[in-house]
Amino acid sequence: MTFESLARRHPASGATAVTIGGRQVHLLDRARIYACGITPYDVTHLGHAATFVWVDILRRVLRVLGVEPIVCRNVTDVDDVLLTASRQAGIAYEHFAAFQEFRFAGDMAALGVRAPDFEPRAHSYIDPVIRLAAALLETGTAYARAGSVYFRGRGVMTRTGLNESDALRIAAEYGGRPDDPAKEDPLDVAVWQAAEPGHPAWDSPWGPGRPGWHAECVAMSGSVFGVGVDFHAGGADLRFPHHAYHARITEAFSGVTPYARAWLHVGTVLVDGRKMAKSAGNLVLVDELLSSYPAAVVRLALIDRPWNESWEYTRAALDLAAVRLEQLHRAAGRPIETRSSEVERIRLLLADELNVSGALDLAVETGGRAARMLVAALGLA
């Protein structure tokens, strides 16, 4: 794409716009960003970090463009995976979650990721989930059975373009319980899950139980931002089922579409061709990386690429990032006059799909004020 076409899409004067995932989002003075946060049951690995560093980049780019970002990043501290991990550790789940959240916050701070403006925790949003379930029952988009409330999810699969067998397989992998005999349809999901032995439970009009995963995020994002957001961010692996159900449940509740104006589905980090995950045994831990590489090098390794593409982690990627960072810092130190047009070209690149690589190439070539602006904008000082 030429700079002339970039300028047409993102004019320096008039409307401020950011293009994410092919969607041009015009903005006034603020932008609402909801980031799917952690389930605090384990240490932070590079796959987690990629998502939250990219959210931080979006936040910083918006500020460069004169828009104030408001970030809400939730904590899913009511979850079956968390309960299992806490039992294995022999620690009460709420204490276990708080400890893991503390470790995560330290890793994010070390990477230069700014704390969110709002950080709701699922356990504090039980009443909003109950009100959500009651409203969905009134509209007929949900039904109550055996102490649970289920959202009718057949249409969610249709919107994603998945076939039924793939949708059911993925739903099962993410704890969606498609084989639950109480459901009318295997693609329905629990907004309110009836109590089970050994699980935390709260009172509700349908009996004791706990909120469903998707409903927790709907309640938290809706309570903070209202019926919609400008950007919803999370890992690409959450596109279905979590993000798809989140959007559809919110729209069914509010009657307003679309829930999100744009989606930042961050590409997956791979090791030896497999998604980085505890189950795969291929985790690269953030705290271990930071013992060998400066935080700015790790940040740059994560963002010197298209945000929505999966990529293979190697040590060579970090070494290349160290070289690129050195080039940028040297360019920033060159005592030359930088034309305002060159700074504006970097802003345009960042506004168009968060093109960090293109902005970095231009800053290294140009040097001076343009490079210094990029160092500050990307948190690479």
Rank of each mutant, 00 (worst) to 15 (best):
I303Q: 05
G368P: 04
V156R: 03
I346K: 04
P116W: 09
P306N: 10
R261C: 00
A331R: 03
R32A: 14
D42Q: 12
H45D: 12
G235V: 00
A244F: 06
A133I: 10
K183T: 01
A146I: 04
A236N: 08
T250S: 15
E309K: 11
W311E: 08
T84V: 12
E342F: 07
D203M: 06
A31F: 00
L283I: 09
P186L: 07
I91R: 14
L349W: 03
A371P: 03
A167L: 05
T19E: 15
V64G: 06
G222D: 11
S148A: 13
V191C: 03
R63M: 10
A17S: 15
D180Y: 03
L238Q: 11
V67N: 06
F253W: 15
L325T: 10
G255P: 01
R369L: 13
T16A: 05
E309C: 05
R30F: 03
V266G: 00
N355A: 13
R347H: 13
A316Y: 05
V343L: 14
D117V: 00
R274A: 15
E4A: 15
H214V: 07
V25E: 02
M1C: 04
L111N: 04
S254F: 06
V129Q: 00
G153D: 10
R330S: 12
D29W: 04
Y125G: 00
G368I: 08
Y41K: 02
R274C: 05
D230G: 03
K275I: 08
H48L: 10
H329K: 15
P306S: 09
A15L: 09
G155T: 09
G333Q: 12
A142T: 08
S254D: 07
H123R: 15
P200R: 13
D319M: 09
A370S: 13
A115L: 08
L264R: 01
L348E: 13
E173M: 08
F96C: 08
Y150S: 01
A171D: 00
L162P: 00
E288N: 04
P294F: 05
A144H: 07
G198K: 09
E101K: 11
R248E: 14
R73A: 09
L302S: 07
P200Y: 12
A97D: 02
G267R: 12
V18P: 00
I249S: 00
V269H: 04
E353W: 00
R8W: 06
L350S: 05
A122D: 04
I33W: 01
A105E: 14
T51Q: 14
G21A: 06
P11W: 12
L238M: 09
R8F: 08
L136N: 06
G212W: 00
S279K: 10
V364F: 09
E173I: 01
V75Q: 00
G267F: 10
N163H: 14
E94G: 02
T160E: 09
S221R: 00
F96W: 11
